[in-house]
Simulated assay, not measured.
Amino acid sequence: MTDVPPQWARGTASRQAHVALPPGAVEEEHGRDGFYGPASHLYRLHAPTAWTAVDGSAAHRAYDTNGLEPADDLWPTPLVGNHQVSVGVHRMVEGRSELLRDADGDQCVFVHAGSGRLRTEYGPLAYAPGDYLIVPRGTTYRFEPSVPTSLLVVEANRSRYRLPDRGLLGRHALFDPAVIEVPEAEAVDEVGEFTVVVKRNGRDTRVTYPFHPCDVIGWKGDLAPMRLPVDAIRPVVSPRYHLPPSAHTTWVADGFVIATFAPRPMETDPEALRLPFFHRNVDYDEVIFYHRGEFSSRAGIGEGFVTFHPTGLHHGPQPAARARDAAAVADADAGTGSAPRFADEVAVMIDAREPLHPGPAAEGIEVAGYVDSWTET
């Protein structure tokens, strides 16, 4: 049995976090280690995001990646990153003739739009919107889009992607590892001039072959490109308690995690919070890419947008999102409507332990006034 840390309670507070808040109060979680460490809940008279102004590098930011023109570049366009992780966008129309080999890190690719084939030396993987594609460091590959394609690319610098420990839920929770697809060997037996562009320490080296580099007739082992469709993810939920984002972790790497907010039932207990609780980032910078659906805690953020919440400032549901949810509940109570029972959204969250820094491309697609969307009028 594990030791139970001390639990202090002072003043007016709920006995159960995220349930039966004191009348007129809002709840904020002040926690450590990404919802895994020590935490306290503060019950406030005002939303901690109800600021009148924010000025500084810790301000929340949003980016509209739809403003990036498809360019068929070799590598993704970086948006934010640090020495352990880079988050970028790759938009292509026809793809490139060169093959690529990233010697700097594993790539986790999320397909936002488009379809086609990921050609790898292990064999091909078909892709479609909502697919995760893992390309291990050092793999030779290229994207062969059949229609214009838009990708979110998260590079793990000098690290590799692993499945998270599911703890008491067991290793088959959220998705069974058996649903992950790996390529069937498919040798390309062609002669000609083929170029592989190797990225090492952020710089390119071009290698030319007189034969197609994807000439593998077979392979075996436990390292390979992988495909995980988001529709195969079965989120763990509770009708009586709002689970933290860590419950939706999909991939882990050194210094960061990737979580998936997939369609899921909402809480039905009338005393339980339905929207994400207010919290302040203390140990992790948070980035969220919005793929599709109506995002329960956000208003004014559309598909293909990226939000960036650095450590230090509170965040949580925006006033417009809280008003939308409250109106739906009131209509249900009055018998004139039904409160939403389903969060119909798909979003990808990256939580990074070390501070993230916006890249040059981010400034050109930044959504003006995003931090002011929490200001209550």
Rank of each mutant, 00 (worst) to 15 (best):
T260M: 00
D254F: 03
G364Q: 15
W8F: 14
V196K: 08
C214F: 10
V54Q: 10
V54P: 06
T52Y: 08
E271W: 05
H309S: 14
K220T: 13
V371S: 15
Y284G: 01
P239L: 03
V89W: 00
T77I: 12
I350F: 07
A320M: 04
A187Y: 06
H46T: 14
E354F: 07
A328C: 01
V197K: 10
A103C: 10
G364N: 10
V19K: 10
N66M: 08
A53D: 13
A343M: 09
Y122K: 02
V197E: 09
E184I: 10
G337P: 00
A25R: 15
T52D: 12
P22Q: 03
G312D: 01
D64W: 01
E303A: 13
P276I: 08
F305C: 14
A47F: 03
F295V: 02
D372T: 12
V87S: 05
P76I: 10
A173C: 04
R227C: 05
T49H: 05
F289Y: 15
A187H: 09
H41N: 15
P235Q: 05
V147M: 07
L21E: 09
Q7K: 15
V135Y: 05
V182R: 14
E144R: 06
E190F: 03
P229T: 06
R206Q: 11
E28Y: 09
A320H: 02
N82G: 06
V54F: 11
G359C: 02
S159N: 02
A25Y: 10
R324N: 06
P164L: 02
V216C: 13
T65P: 02
N201R: 15
G24A: 04
T249P: 01
L45W: 12
V282Y: 11
Q16H: 14
R324I: 00
G31R: 09
F35S: 11
